[in-house]
């Protein structure tokens, strides 16, 4: 399985990557903004995308739009802070299937990925 981690923060990317452990993902790609995320998505066709919202160049919501336009079956897990409920609702409205609360822990990442891949 392939995973694409989209986050402008190196710390967050590392945190998510580390949380995966010995997991099902054979390929993990990263992108630091929405534009790169769309490009990486087209190139690698990942099974799951974790998407930060606040990013330079193209934000997460716009990236969700672009990715859903390219593949309506894309599986996107939005990473967002608790306070940012409006954004989470907006992301689900635009087609994201999952929601991962910041700050992330190994357990929360695993649980969110299990959840999104189970159905």
């Amino acid at each position: 399985m392939k995973l694409l981690i989209v986050d402008d923060s190196l710390i967050m990317r590392r945190a998510i990557e580390r949380s995966l452990g010995q997991s099902r993902f054979t390929e993990v790609h990263t992108a630091t903004n929405g534009l790169l995320a769309v490009e990486m998505f087209e190139r690698h066709q990942p099974d799951v995308v974790t998407m930060d919202i606040t990013m330079p160049d193209m934000d997460g919501l716009a990236a969700v739009d672009e990715i859903m336009k390219r593949n309506p079956r894309a599986v996107i897990l939005v990473v967002s802070a608790l306070a940012d409920k409006a954004t989470a609702v907006e992301a689900v409205k635009r087609g994201a299937q999952g929601f991962l609360l910041k700050p992330v822990t190994a357990q929360s990442v695993q649980a969110a990925l299990d959840d999104i891949l189970s159905d």
Partner: peptide, 26 residues
């Protein structure tokens, strides 16, 4: 209120997975 309206639309949209929708309850 706008977010709540969107959210209720999501709740009634059977095409969205309930689990994902319930998780983002604003």
């Amino acid at each position: 209120f706008r977010t709540t309206k969107d959210y209720i639309d999501l709740l009634f949209d059977a095409g969205r997975k309930e689990k994902a929708v319930l998780k983002v309850n604003p």
